[in-house]
Design a protein around this nucleic acid. Sequence first.
DNA 1: TGCATCGGATACAGACTTGTATCGCATACG
DNA 2: CGTATGCGATACAAGTCTGTATCCGATGCA
Lengths: 206, 206
Amino acid sequence: MPKGPTKRRPQTTARLLHAAQETFAERGFYGSSIEVICERAGLTRGAFYSNYRTKEDLFFALFDLHAQRVIDRLTQAVDELDLADDPLRAVLTRMGTVDEAERRWYLLSTEFTLHAIRHPDTARALAEHDRRLREEIVHLLAQLLDRLGRRPTVDLNLLARLTTAVHEGSLTQSLVEPDQLAPEQLAVTFLPTFLDTVSEPVATEG
Amino acid sequence: MPKGPTKRRPQTTARLLHAAQETFAERGFYGSSIEVICERAGLTRGAFYSNYRTKEDLFFALFDLHAQRVIDRLTQAVDELDLADDPLRAVLTRMGTVDEAERRWYLLSTEFTLHAIRHPDTARALAEHDRRLREEIVHLLAQLLDRLGRRPTVDLNLLARLTTAVHEGSLTQSLVEPDQLAPEQLAVTFLPTFLDTVSEPVATEG
DNA sequence: TGCATCGGATACAGACTTGTATCGCATACG
DNA sequence: CGTATGCGATACAAGTCTGTATCCGATGCA
């Protein structure tokens, strides 16, 4: 928290984002009025409108924060890859750590996706954000396979879509039936084998 | 549509339910005001409030209608069971016919479930409706196994939960990735084998 | 320190919903 | 037919949220 002669805008947006995160978690996207979010941030709507255009903008800002966290975690997992034992399983287990924050985010983004389905403009914006995140994941997948001395035999973009689908599908089911399925059980169980089948070893030269 | 000296209440509720179905489909649950639903039904809010207490009541009425359709379809499939060839697969394929209406209902009920998560009273009501539907499915599962000359080796209630989870999980993924997965592909592929493993043949006497 | 401007606060107008209280017509019965 | 009442229409009173126009104090540079 920088004090002194600093422009206060960054601090204001940080407070708004923090308040939005908590409010969305408690009351959902629809249930959270801009007014309530601002109150929680200790600000007025004036502050909001001078930083964002709509409540959706605020969501997308949170989306980007979340995406960055995901990417950071995955990057670190790939970087610290231990080639010794079952590296794929290790990476997946690590990426699959689903904490409370992740679960809350999942609920929120599901609600927002349903909202987007009814609002084409929002849907386009969401698709664009999704695309950017997927691009990063493609990059990481490529890096991962490379470090494993393998190269993909299918389109990496499709592969990124699949891992995402498995991640989210598994999460859904574990939320519906918490006692029946661990959050990342499906991914950890099936993805290592699957990644093997959609890639091939690269011949080492020399 | 009965005319003449008939109480008009049934006709009014029918019109409200029909209008609600269409409005919810277009604008979602949150996006549909009671007012708009009534307009679409060619009625005023007076008609609504004299038949329902809240918008949630209306949703639950639709829930019951949908549940009845599901049960009817399943019942018929079990009744017409052809013991000749692969009966399980036949039943599942039949129950798994996911039409446009089913997909719309899935979107709506997902939105409503998220809503219920934030509202304990609603959650309780939803759980109760879910329970009643599951009871019917338990009944049908029992009937199905019986006609196949088998008896369950696990709790039927749990089994009903599982089939539901597979159905919904598969639907989710097929909505996210329509080109990658047919709506009931998972159920048709895995449930027959699974049902075999959780039941045993009944010794025929004589 | 004086001053320009940036950024958050305030005030206002308007759109939408909701729930209730009340009214009046049509229905169904004697 | 006449009449009681069932039931949908109407009117009313809040409450909530949004977006904008405007104000004023803090910030940061000369």
